[in-house]
Structures are given as structure tokens and as C-alpha cells.
């Protein structure tokens, strides 16, 4: 059972929002005593996924949550957009493939940086990506 301790919803519309969103993510990670490695990991993954929403879907939103499983705290980020969807998810997750001539490492990298990673995408409907990062045991 995972409890949501607190929840924040932020819009992703302009480049400045990337800084706002990842700052909030870092602040939550620090407040919940994630170590510097986990904090860097969640902050960076959030930065990547926020930019993806902006660049590949033209905008959307994110819900940042402080979560707890009764023993540890964690941070969860759920990104949602109504963009074109990820055309080839397998390729996008393999890494090194970009449809916008950038590095193509954001999605696969975020998956490695997070403790949990889920993605749902549908062509023409949109994309939802959810990640979690937990305190070390």
C-alpha cells in the first residue's frame, strides 16, 4: 500500500516551467530525505520528462507526490499530455533514437534513474509517464 502524503499539480507550457517543475521535485526529494544520489536521479529524470512533454507533445502537466509505503518515503511524478503519443515505444525506450535530432537518451535514461517507471501511450491520444524514487533502505 502506498500512501500519498502530499500532491502538487504543475502545468508544463513554456521552457521556464522545466526549471519550476524540477525545482519542486528536488525540494520534495530533499524534504523527504532522499540521499544526494537519489535526489539527483529524480531531479534529472523529472527534467527530462518535463522537456519531453514540452518538446514532443507541445505541453501538458505533471503531478508531483510525496509518497510513503509505511517504512520509507519517496517521490512520484506523473506526466500527462495529449500530444501525438510515442510512435515507436520500443525504439524510444531502447535509447539513442530521437525524432527531434537530440540525444534520444531522456526516456531510457529516466527509466534507469527511477526505481519504478511506467509509460502508457496511444497514437493521437497522448502519453502518460510515471516514475518513482524512494529513500534507500
Amino acid at each position: 500500500m502506498i500512501d500519498v502524503v502530499a500532491q502538487y499539480r504543475l502545468e508544463i507550457q513554456i521552457e521556464d516551467d522545466i526549471v519550476i517543475v524540477r525545482r519542486k521535485a528536488r525540494q520534495l526529494a530533499q524534504a523527504r530525505k532522499l540521499d544526494p544520489f537519489a535526489t539527483a536521479a529524480i531531479t534529472t529524470a523529472v527534467s527530462e520528462l518535463t522537456r519531453n512533454v514540452l518538446v514532443h507533445a507541445g505541453g501538458g502537466s505533471v503531478v508531483l507526490e510525496e509518497i510513503s509505503d509505511g517504512e520509507r518515503y519517496g517521490v512520484r511524478a506523473t506526466f500527462e499530455d495529449h500530444g501525438p503519443g510515442i510512435a515507436n515505444l520500443e525504439l524510444a525506450l531502447a535509447g539513442g533514437h530521437s525524432t527531434s535530432k537530440t540525444m534520444g537518451l531522456g526516456l531510457s535514461g529516466s527509466k534507469r534513474l527511477a526505481d519504478r517507471f511506467e509509460v502508457k501511450t496511444e497514437k493521437g491520444v497522448g502519453t502518460t509517464v510515471r516514475i518513482e524514487k524512494w529513500q534507500g533502505l
Binding site: T39, A40, A41, E48, G96, S108, G109
Partner: peptide
């Protein structure tokens, strides 16, 4: 480059 940033870069695959 701090240790967390080094590790993050490696995990990103950069």
C-alpha cells in the same frame, strides 16, 4: 562534477 552528477550522467548513458 559531483559524485551524484557523475552517476546520473552514466545512468543517462551520456
Amino acid at each position: 562534477i559531483s559524485a551524484p552528477i557523475a552517476r546520473t550522467l552514466v545512468q543517462l548513458g551520456v
